[in-house]
């Protein structure tokens, strides 16, 4: 499957890196979001991307998913250069990738079961019975058996997330992205979801990229953590390394200290007017 055709120039990284981001710069309108980000994820690990709001972690995720076009830089996912990939290459790549969005992003016109079955129905030629069994299996894994016929509007926030996760893994992807697993959930549900992520890794052994701002869940599930700060990577390392890191920005985040960089009045005004345009 993993034809490492990326070998070409630049990539140079060992083949265990499934995601390789080199010097990624992105803008939103005129505003620079990511400033030269280098980032890599190895096969089989759980990489957690952390950062406060506005740090660019969601933007990084959207670029990894090829939902946005970068200003410059190179993103190689599983041997495919996302910037220059054809639509067909991208389609093939995406069949091997699962994405669990923040709010589940379930199609509101379909039941839970149909949502989970959607990728199978679109991309495989399996018969309806097999599809049904596979969907049930994944829903069971997410503790959602019995919810098959509910509509997304009838589900709670945690159930939506879990259904989204079930849909993301129904094709048995080798790479799974998870956006804010614990945002908007009560602590108990949040812990459940973390356990679910670990259980999933044991069960199917996939590479995961989890974007979150929750410290506890990050330290619990991560093999490695990337800390983003204002569009730059502050630190990459194992949870222990992050805890021990003496970078002030990282320490502030871990100890939940508010950022206290002096606010320049002019800059602040400019930011306000930029938003108004």
């Amino acid at each position: 499957m993993s034809a490492v055709e990326a070998g070409g120039e630049g990539a140079g990284a060992p083949s265990q890196a499934i995601i390789q981001v080199t010097d990624l710069v992105t803008h939103y309108g005129d505003r620079q979001i990511l400033k030269s980000v280098d980032f890599s994820v190895n096969r089989g690990e759980i990489m957690v991307v952390m950062g406060g709001s506005g740090s660019g972690k969601s933007t990084l995720l959207r670029h990894l998913l090829a939902l946005e076009k970068a200003t410059s830089g190179r993103i190689v996912v599983d041997g495919v250069d996302i910037g220059s990939a054809s639509r067909k290459q991208l389609t093939e790549l995406r069949k091997g990738i699962g994405v669990a969005f923040q709010g589940g992003a379930l199609l509101s016109s379909m039941s839970v079961a149909d949502n989970v079955k959607l990728p199978l129905r679109q991309h495989t030629r399996l018969n309806e019975d097999t599809i049904d069994i596979m969907a049930r299996l994944k829903l069971e894994l997410m503790n959602l058996s019995g919810c098959e016929d509910l509509m997304p509007a009838e589900l709670s926030g945690g159930m939506l997330k879990r259904t989204g996760l079930a849909r993301a893994v129904v094709m048995d992807p080798k790479l799974l992205f998870f956006d804010e697993p614990s945002a908007g959930l009560d602590p108990v549900t949040s812990v459940e979801l973390d356990d679910l992520i670990l259980k999933l890794r044991e069960a199917v052994n996939i590479t995961m990229v989890v974007v979150t701002h929750e410290l506890e869940s990050a330290f619990k599930i991560a093999d490695r953590i990337t800390v983003l700060f204002d569009g730059e990577i502050a630190k990459v390392g194992t949870p222990e390394e992050i805890r021990a890191c003496d970078d002030e920005r990282v320490q502030n985040m871990i100890n939940r200290r508010p950022r206290k960089d002096p606010v320049d009045a002019n800059k602040y005004l400019n930011r306000l007017t930029a938003g108004a345009r």
């Binding site: 992003a105 959607l118 992205f177």
Partner: peptide, 20 residues
């Protein structure tokens, strides 16, 4: 409004990511 809500809830992003 149905389509706008789908956009709002990232349903189109999800469909893109599922290569649909």
């Amino acid at each position: 409004s149905e389509i706008a809500i789908m956009r709002n809830e990232q349903q189109f992003d999800a469909l893109d990511c599922m290569a649909i």
